[in-house]
Structures are given as structure tokens and as C-alpha cells.
Design a protein around this nucleic acid. Structure first.
Lengths: 358, 358
DNA sequence: TAGCCATAGAAAAACGATTTACTGCCTGCG
DNA sequence: CGCAGGCAGTAAATCGTTTTTCTATGGCTA
């Protein structure tokens, strides 16, 4: 095992601007002006500026973040609120993080676990911590806030909240189109749990599209999930219920990939093979969708990209106050894999691609 | 769709202590003392205190976080540094978050993607933002820091860093014991990628235990992963390489669950069935392990718990400075599922349990 | 020679809390 | 009568910046 290199000195809690100024025999004002490259610094000669920078580097001066924030009223801090750190959330967050870091922002995250009190409280706490805006994922908000708010997969129409959503109508067309073209008529549907903000809109779109395609949605082939977890267990019991309802079906459109994986497990445990007995379509295209056995046919949401868009939109709103787009939509994509066809080889492992904003 | 209830007023950026004091015809001092329940507040009569609290509530007074932090030199903020938001990291983070929130701390997270510059830089940035300590996940640190640091899956011996680790020796005993008992002699081994801090220790333990069990580790049955991603693709090419080396084996001990899933896919694509042709053991017990097909036999790390322990240890070190335990170890557990046995039913879906600190 | 501008920098007032010393005023006690 | 101690607070310093306003000197121009 490597020897414990105890490299670079601990960098003790750094010195203050005042101390630095004293050391330089200058006033704090001057030093501050130069360090921040303010317009006022133009009056300070090159030589002095050099001295200042040099000393700052040598003494490892690092401005106190709190003092600075207190004065400038800026924190370069964004709050991210989500139900739970699922795969889905992790990908979105990853996209958010990418963009924020590039722009010099940090974020803090909090998971409310669908606890209504926490959903109320966290935004307040974040506000206390002076975030400049927040991004909520799959979380319904009822207030308006004194800062910009972006909702990913939010569908409320709240003043000051910009929704980043996927085109659910198109998604339904892709999924149902694929199944119908593959010859399926008896399709079972899984409605998302009430706590998930996408459930209602996604369901409506499916109904509309099915109707437009002349496809009957038989009640005995529809089930609704009762709870939400970030794990496949959320898809298991609902399939048991579906089977108990006794309808016959050759295909299943699941609410999302996580529940589709649980559903497939439940179908297998009941003696049915996927895709031979039942074809299954998921939603999201989380990383494990491609590696599940059978790999999942699914409606891909460009999650990373959606995270980036959310972050980008937020920062834009921060720059020019006022203009708050109500919605930014992205396009879904159909990814066909084993769960609706017989074995493919090699597996379809490609990742997300494009996006359209409107 | 629900009508857009625009509930509770925006809570404009809240008033200051001074304003509140003025409104009450009291000095800021008094109000501060009472609000913070300082010892000095004992001199203030009940009635006045009531008035103060009432007004604070009515005017929605919320102390300015920056001003307060500036004065008290406390931020109640922890930094969490990780390579990437994988399943593994998400679970740990979830545990960390649980504990921190309970104690009134917040955290910010950053993913360095194994970029050495970022690994250097992020702790500094976090320090600038006045975190009181940091928790690193699977990230090697070379400095010492002027605040407590906890490393999950870290194995360096650095002054001031407390490592939270799993007992790898025990883990190897469990995995190899299980395979040997099931009659396997020709076992293939996957060594983790260099960037992962667990790779070396885990490998050493396997070698020792194999040796102790009189099990030969044939070179043609050993492969090392070249890269690390949070997705199963990290396990795919390494199996192609293993097969190309031409050794015969009936079992595989993968580096972790993610790579095990990719490995299983590669084996299948090469015409071999799991577990019938090859038994596979993973490591971690991430949520999808139980839902993979075949479900994964694996060495479970109590990830959530480890996160909690890390957070708890950090806060303890924060309270009583000085005492810095070098290591806290937790016990692994063997979870037997389909990938090493023929089909089980129902699937073994239980979650993590206990832990031991030493 | 008055007026003006550029140069080089400093003083002082914020930002919004916390905290250490005080200040009067009363009352009870020896 | 003198004073200790409790009561009910307050003044002022401080945390470390940023920013607006100011000064002092010298040189140039009209």
C-alpha cells in the first residue's frame, strides 16, 4: 500500500483581506479593488497590482465566502429538491451539476421522500441559506417564491415556475405505435402512483392517443400503482393485481423502467416469459434498462440533457429577470430492445441524444 | 388538472433583526438573545420573550444565514465528494443525507469524474465555502485538511482522515467459501479499475483468502478492468478479454454488481448461461442486483448504513475535536440469489441489515 | 493663475447578525 | 447608610468583505 504522502501543507484557515492589506502597507480598499478587478482598479498602477497578486498568492489569501456573500447578496448557490436519489434523479442531477459547475455555481440537494411537511419546509430552509434559485424534480410546489424556480417533470401552472417536460403525447404515440405495429391489440397499462407528478399527464396522453388510434383501454387491463420507491419493487405487486383481474394481454406499457423491471420479474414468477408471452415497454431509459435481461424497450427521456436545460434555464432567468418561460419541452425517443422483440444481438447500448426546446 | 393554487404569499426576502427590534421598540441585542435562547436571555421576562417570538413569527423574521455564519464561524455545512452519481454513491449519499438532516446540517455534493485536477480543487472550493468537514466517497486524498475528513472506501493512512470501510477479508471468505462449497474450483477473478480505491485492498484480500483455502488463482483466469463508469458497460469488455485468454472456468467473482451485470450480459452474448455454465458473484448489493435476471448473488455492503456512519462519525469529530479514529469497519454479508444457484422463487429481495464498528 | 483632470490611494459606511461589556434602577440586608 | 445582587435591558465592537465618496498631489491648459 502506498506510503501516506502528507503533501501540501494544511492551508490553515486563510488570512483576511485586512491582514493582507496591512502586510502590503495598503488599504483594504485598494487590495479589494485589485483582487476583484473592479473598474476602480484602473487607477492602480501595474506594479502595485503585481505586488498585490503576488502577496495574495504567497499568503494564500482566499476571500471569506460569507463576508462576501453578506455584502454582495449573492451566493452562487442553487437548491435541488427531489423525492429520493433514484437512478432517474441521479441522471438529472448529474446534468444539473455539469452545467452549474461550469458556470461557477454550487448546489445543495435534499430528498423529501414525498413527505408533505418536508416539501413545504425544504424550500424555506434553502431560502434561508440564500439560494439564488431552486430546481425541483418530480415535486409539486404550491407557493410562488421570491426567486426563480424550475420544475423538472412538473405540470402545475404556477406563476414564476418554469416546467421542463417531455412531450408525453409524442411519447405515447411512439410506444403504442410500436406495440400496435408489432401486432399487439390487448395491451395492459400501468398508471403511475399519485405522488409522481408525471402520472396524470402521462396517463391522459395515453388515453388520448389510444383513442385516436382506435385502441380500447379495457378496465381489466389497467392498474394503478399504489406507492413509489426508487427500486423495482414498485412494479411487482401491481402486476400481481393485474393478473388477478383476469384480463388477457400480450403487451404491457409500464409507467417507467424501474417498475417495468419489477413487472417483468413478477410476470416471470407467474410463469410468463418476456417478450414471448408478454411484450413490455418501459419509460425513461435509465442506465440499467439496457442491461436488464431481457433488455428493455423503452421511451427514452434525455435525462442528463434535461438536467442541463433546467440549470441553464435557471441561470438565464437569473441573468435577465422578468422573462420566465412557462415551459421547455424535450422530445422523447423510442429505443427498441429485447423486451418487445426476440433476442437481439448485440445489445442496443447507445445513450441519449437530441432535444428540442420550444 | 388541478387549479393552480398560488398559496402562501411569496415571503419576500425577510426583514432584518434590526428592523424587527425597531418594530418592537427593543434593541437588537435583546431580540437576538431571546431568539437564540442564549443564556443571557434569562434576564428577559417571559412577557417580553413572548412579544418577541410573536412579532418574529408575524413578520416572518428569518435570520440571515450569511451574517450569522460570518459572526459565528459556523456553517452547518458538509461537503460530499464522489466520482460520479452511481447507484452505489446514491445509496451512500442517501444515508449521509438522512443523518445530516436529522442534525440540522446541509451538504453539498460534487462529482469529480476521476479528474485529478478536480479532486485537488473541489476540497479547496468547499473549504472556501466554509464547510465544517467533508466526506469523500471512493476518492483518494493526499493533503491533510484543517477540518475533519471521512473517507468511505478509502484506504490511505492519512493524518486526520477517518476511513469507513468494509471488512474485505471477511468478504472474500464469504464469496469464495460459497463458491467452493458449491463445488467450483476453476474460478475467474475480476480486479477493479485502478481509479477505484477499493480495488487494491479487495484484490489483496482475495489473494490471501484463496491462498489460505488452497485455491490457485490461475493467471489466465484473472483480468483487470481498464476503466470505471457507473454503468454495466464497465464489465463487458473485460469479459471478452477473459474469454480470449482461453482459460476454462465455472465461476466468476466480479469486482462489483454493476460490472457483474455487464459481465453476465457479455457471457450470454458469448453463448454461456448464468448460472448453468458460469456462476457469478457480485459485490455491493445495489438495488438492481435483486432485480437483475438472473438475480445476483452478491456480497452486501450496508451502504446506507455506511453513509450514516460516516456522517455520524464526522459530526462526532466536530463536537469533540482531537479524537480521530483511523478506521471504522462494517461487516459484509453474503446474499445468495439466482446467479450462483438455479432459479429461486420467490426472489430474495430483502434489504441491508446490521453493522459492527471497531 | 484659476480651473481641470489624472493619478494613487484611503476613510468610512454598509451588509446582518452575535457577544462582551456596560448602565440604571430597585430591593434587601447587615 | 452602604452596597451587593438581581432585573431589564442597551451600546458598541466585531466578523471580512465591497463600494461610494473623498483627499492630496502634480501637471496641463486656457
Amino acid at each position: 500500500m502506498a506510503k501516506p504522502k502528507t503533501g501540501g501543507i494544511p492551508k490553515n484557515r486563510s488570512i483576511s483581506l485586512k491582514a493582507l492589506a496591512e502586510h502590503l502597507q495598503l488599504s483594504p480598499t485598494t487590495v479589494s479593488l485589485v483582487i476583484n478587478r473592479s473598474k476602480g482598479a484602473s487607477a492602480i498602477p501595474e506594479e502595485t497590482q503585481r505586488r498585490i497578486f503576488e502577496a495574495a498568492k504567497k499568503l494564500n489569501y482566499r476571500p471569506n465566502f460569507y463576508a462576501r456573500s453578506l455584502r454582495t447578496q449573492r451566493s452562487f448557490m442553487i437548491g435541488v429538491l427531489h423525492p429520493d436519489l433514484s437512478d432517474y434523479v441521479a441522471l438529472l442531477t448529474s446534468g444539473i451539476e455539469d452545467h452549474l459547475m461550469r458556470e461557477g455555481y454550487f448546489y445543495f440537494a435534499a430528498g423529501h421522500r414525498n413527505n408533505p411537511e418536508l416539501i413545504e419546509e425544504y424550500p424555506m430552509i434553502m431560502m434561508d441559506r440564500a439560494v439564488e434559485g431552486i430546481i425541483v424534480i418530480d415535486t409539486p410546489l404550491n407557493h410562488t417564491f421570491p426567486f426563480p424556480v424550475i420544475a423538472i417533470s412538473g405540470h402545475r401552472n404556477v406563476e414564476g415556475i418554469t416546467n421542463v417536460v417531455i412531450d408525453h403525447k409524442r411519447a405515447a404515440e411512439l410506444a403504442l405505435g410500436h406495440l400496435v405495429q408489432s401486432g399487439h391489440r390487448n395491451i395492459a397499462f400501468m398508471k403511475g402512483p399519485k405522488v409522481s407528478s408525471d402520472s396524470e399527464v402521462r396517463w391522459q396522453s395515453i388515453c388520448e392517443v389510444a383513442d385516436a388510434m382506435g385502441l380500447a383501454m379495457k378496465p381489466e387491463l389497467c392498474v394503478e400503482m399504489e406507492f413509489s420507491t426508487p427500486f423495482p419493487d414498485m412494479g411487482y405487486p401491481v402486476i400481481e393485481k393485474l393478473l388477478a383481474q383476469g384480463g388477457r394481454f400480450t403487451a404491457l406499457f409500464a409507467f417507467n423502467d424501474v417498475s417495468a423491471i419489477g413487472a417483468i420479474r413478477a410476470l416471470r414468477d407467474a410463469g410468463m416469459e418476456v417478450p414471448d408471452d408478454v411484450a413490455v415497454v418501459g419509460f425513461d431509459d435509465i442506465p440499467s434498462a439496457a442491461y436488464n435481461t431481457p433488455s428493455l424497450t423503452t421511451i427514452r427521456q434525455p435525462l442528463r440533457r434535461m438536467g442541463e436545460i433546467a440549470a441553464q434555464t435557471l441561470l438565464e432567468r437569473l441573468r435577465k429577470k422578468g422573462a420566465a418561460p412557462g415551459e421547455v419541452a424535450v422530445e422523447p425517443e423510442l429505443v427498441i430492445r429485447e423486451s418487445t422483440t426476440s433476442r437481439l444481438k448485440p445489445s442496443n447500448l447507445q445513450r441519449e441524444s437530441e432535444v428540442t426546446a420550444k
